[in-house]
Amino acid sequence: MTVEALSTSKIKEHLDKSLEFLGSSIGNGSYSYAIDGKTPSTEASAWAAIALVHNKPKLEEKLVAFLLANQNNDGGWSTGPGIGPSDWTSAVALLALRIAKHYQPDVISEKIFKRSLKKAANYLITSRNDFMFPVMRLMLLLGAKGPMGLQFGKGWPWNKNCYSWVEPTAYSLMALKLPYLIDDYLIKVAIEHAHTFLLDRACKGGGWNHGAFYALGTYCPPYILTSAEALLSLIDIPDNEQVKSGLDYLHQAHGESFSAWSLSLSILALDAFGYDCTHNINLLLNLQDKNGSFQSNYMVTALSILALQTSRGINIFKLPKDKVIK
C-alpha cells in the first residue's frame, strides 16, 4: 500500500477488521493490554468501550458493566481488579462511562450512572495533592518568586501522594470535559489549575513530554504521544499560544512515528483541531496486523479504531461548539 489517499471503502475494510478483532476477543467482558495477556486492564477495557460505542453497543455494554463492577469504594479504579488502590486509570474509566452514557443512554440506568459519576468525579478532585509541604511553600515564597511563586499549576498524579505529570493530567481533563463539561464549581477550579499546569510545562518550540520542559540546564524535547494527549485535553482553548505551538509541533512531526499508539493519538488530536490527517491515516493502516489488531495490544487497537473513524467524521474528542468552556 502506498502513502496515497485511500478510498473510504478501503479504510472501512481496515476498520471493520479491527472491530471484528476486538469484538471476537472480549472474553469475560474485559480486555488485557497485550493480546496474549491473561488479566483485565481497566485502561484497555475503557478505551475499548469508547472505541465500540458507535459500532458494537452490545459489547460496549459488557465493558461498561466491567467498569461499574470494578469501581472502588473511593470512586476510583485500579489499573486492574484487585491490583492495589485507585490510580490514574480512574480518569480513563470515567471518560468511558461518560462517553457510553452520552452516545448510548440506555447502556446504564440514570441512577447508577449518576452515583458512579459523582463518586468518580469526587475521587478525581481529591486525588490531587498539594504541590509542596508547608515548609517548602514558605521557602519558595521567600526564596523564589515571592507570592507569585505560589500561583503554581496543579495537575493530576499517576498515583495518590505523588506529584503531577502531563499524562494523568491530560486523561483527567478529558474525563471532566468530555462529552461535555461537568457543571461543578470545584471541577471548574481543578480544570483551571490543570490548564495552568499543562501550559507551564509546554516544551520550548512546542509540544509536551511527560513532564519536564527543562531539567538541570537542559531543555527537554516533546514526544508525539504526550503532545497529542495534552492537546486533546486542551481542546477547548484552541487559541492559546502553547496549544498552537503544540499543534505546530505535532503537525510537523507527522509521519515521524512508526508506532500505532502515537499515530492514532496524533490523528485524533490533529483531526479534533481541524487538520487533515490523510497522510497519518495511511501510515496507520500500514501498521495493522493481519488479524486486524495494532501492536498486538487491545488498547492500541481501540485507539486505532478511534483514529480511523475520523475518516467518517467521528471524533469523540471534538467538543460540541455549544459546550465550549468559557
Binding site: D200, Y214, A215
Partner: peptide, 15 residues
C-alpha cells in the same frame, strides 16, 4: 538540592 529541584518546576516530582 531539594529547593533547587522543586524550583526548577521541571517534572513537578517530589524531591
Amino acid at each position: 538540592a531539594s529547593i533547587a529541584s522543586l524550583a526548577m518546576a521541571s517534572c513537578s516530582t517530589p524531591p
